[in-house]
Computed example of a mutant assay.
Amino acid sequence: MARPVAKDYGTKRQLILDRAAQLFADEGFHRTSVSRVAQACEISKANVYHYYSGKDEILFDILNAYLFGLRDSVFALQDDVKNLLPEDQFAATVTKILLDYQGMDNQHRLQTTVLKHLPVDQQKVLLVYQRDIVRLVSGLIVAIEPRVFENSDEKLRATTMSVFGMLNWYYMWNPNADEQARHKYAAHVCQFCKGGFTGL
């Protein structure tokens, strides 16, 4: 007979992921032990192992949930904005990405610093999510200025990654930004890009 799932299984599992994400981001993935995660969750080390086989599995679950959710959220938006002008689709998408980053600073830091420490097969899963989002934004950039980007993959890649550079490091210099601040910054990025694309 299968062992029944505890009523608080999902809640406790999420607690482990949230506390581990904070510890991995603040103290370093390699310096954080399973015992340290258990201590932060106020549960036993054995209890952590009931949910996860080790730190790699915890890290993968953190990043998989984050990137899968981000990818699906951004793609779901496209149905709502498909009839807008390309620049308005771009603005809505940039804003959505920034809003989805809110409250996810630890997860965001981990994807940029320790994803490479996961097994290659797990990295490949996560990189698919990242590349899907990058391709989407690249397509929107081309739609805004096809004359500039259609025949220059190098220029398109550089521009796309510059946009993500502006978005991905926002939490570093404005960690307490609320929704209003994120909307304002998204508008700033879009205005900056609108003027910059035509000059490339």
Rank of each mutant, 00 (worst) to 15 (best):
L23H: 07
F24L: 05
F24D: 10
A25R: 07
A25Y: 10
A25G: 11
D26T: 06
D26E: 14
H30Q: 11
T32Y: 05
V34R: 04
S35L: 14
S35W: 13
S35R: 15
R36M: 15
R36E: 15
V37D: 14
Q39V: 10
I43S: 14
I43V: 11
S44A: 14
K45N: 14
N47Q: 13
V48I: 15
H50D: 11
H50Q: 12
Y51A: 08
Y52E: 13
G54L: 09
K55H: 08
K55I: 03
K55R: 10
E57Y: 10
I58T: 12
L59V: 06
L59A: 13
D61C: 09
D61T: 11
L63E: 14
L63I: 01
N64S: 13
N64K: 10
N64H: 12
G69M: 08
S73I: 03
V74T: 09
A76Q: 10
Q78L: 07
V81Y: 03
K82C: 02
N83T: 04
L85A: 10
P86D: 07
P86L: 02
Q89M: 05
F90V: 01
A91C: 03
A92E: 09
I97M: 02
L99R: 06
L99N: 06
L99T: 00
L99A: 06
Y101L: 09
Y101W: 14
Y101V: 02
Y101T: 05
Y101S: 05
Q102M: 08
Q102I: 01
D105R: 04
D105T: 07
Q107P: 08
T112L: 13
T112V: 10
T113Q: 12
V114L: 10
V114R: 11
K116E: 15
K116F: 00
H117L: 12
H117E: 15
L118R: 08
L118E: 13
V120R: 13
V120G: 09
V120I: 12
Q122N: 12
V125A: 06
Q130H: 03
Q130V: 02
R131M: 05
R135P: 04
R135W: 05
L136G: 00
S138F: 00
G139Y: 05
G139D: 00
G139P: 02
I141L: 03
I144C: 04
E145W: 02
V148I: 00
V148D: 12
F149R: 02
E150R: 09
E150P: 02
N151E: 09
S152D: 15
D153S: 06
D153A: 09
K155P: 09
L156D: 05
R157A: 14
R157Y: 15
R157D: 15
S162C: 07
V163S: 05
V163D: 05
F164V: 00
F164H: 01
G165S: 02
G165D: 04
M166W: 00
M166S: 08
M166F: 07
L167P: 11
W169P: 00
W169L: 08
W169T: 01
